[in-house]
């Protein structure tokens, strides 16, 4: 469903991505993890067709993104890292707009929008401008916008950022349902336990390269660390170690 092949991207002398390749098939949840500046956002932008890769190709539902970004966007729902919504529009108006922009049939789209708003507990606030929402409510609106129109593939960038525990649980339920329906899902997050719990396969991106790729069991085997969680595996593959903060606020220790 999503095929990323040998993607390279540089900004001047800085190589943001150095030949990234992986694929995500229908009914699979793929977790992409990496440090700040590892290249996750650049990869997400290339996947959406917002940036052109220097080399390599991205296919979504068998369509090359670089050749036909409009059609590939039709097959791809996107939740950006920040919920960039129009403060003056209501949640319902956002969904109406997305439905029109995606060329959906109005009646059916509104029914779907109502179901999403109801499930995400935005029903009461649906006719209030988004500018009056809390961060979590804005996030839920953005999630509903990404889901509208049943795209076969979805990219969620830090999906639970700002969501309350109940919102995060509801999002988890949505993911389960999307997976059951056979959609291809990519999740990026800095919260590793969350990724570990929700994804089937993982890619660890470090300094523009995929340094580890596979299921949790495969990563444990590769690292030769049986029973290790994703956090420990992440530190292992990125060559980092846990740091002890004891003494951080102790002046005497600093002087030493």
């Amino acid at each position: 469903m999503i095929e990323i092949e040998g993607i390279k991207k540089s900004y001047g002398d800085f190589e943001a991505l150095k030949g990234v390749s992986f694929s995500v098939k229908g009914g699979e949840v793929f977790g992409l993890v990496g440090l700040n500046g590892a290249g996750k956002s650049t990869l997400a932008k290339i996947l959406m067709g917002f940036l052109r890769p220097d080399e390599g190709s991205v296919k979504v539902a068998d369509k090359l993104v670089a050749e036909d970004p409009v059609q590939s966007r039709r097959s791809l729902g996107y939740l950006p890292e920040e919920s960039v919504l129009y403060s003056e529009l209501t949640a319902l108006e956002h969904l109406e707009m997305v439905a029109e922009l995606r060329g959906l049939e109005r009646g059916e789209a509104l029914k779907q929008a109502s179901r999403f708003l109801d499930f995400l507990e935005l029903d009461e606030a649906r006719e209030r401008p988004v500018g009056t929402y809390s961060k979590g409510m804005r996030r839920k609106t953005a999630i509903a916008c990404a889901l509208l129109g049943d795209p076969p593939a979805l990219l969620f960038d830090e999906p639970t950022s700002g969501l309350d525990p109940d919102g995060a649980l509801r999002f988890s339920e949505i993911l389960t349902e999307l997976k059951r329906q056979g959609r291809a899902l990519i999740l990026t997050s800095h919260v590793l336990p969350e990724i570990e719990q929700r994804c089937d396969r993982f890619g660890v991106l470090d300094k523009g390269e995929i340094v580890a790729l596979g299921t949790l069991a495969e990563l444990q085997e590769k690292a030769e660390r049986e029973g290790a969680n994703l956090e420990e595996l992440f530190l292992h593959f990125t060559g980092r170690e846990r740091r002890d903060a004891r003494g951080l606020f102790d002046d005497e220790k600093t002087e030493e």
């Binding site: 959406m48 409009v70 966007r73 995606r102």
Partner: peptide
């Protein structure tokens, strides 16, 4: 409204 451009561009608009 360029801040929201990413929202617009994420849609299949010609």
């Amino acid at each position: 409204r360029r801040r929201q451009l990413i929202f617009e561009k994420a849609q299949p608009l010609t």
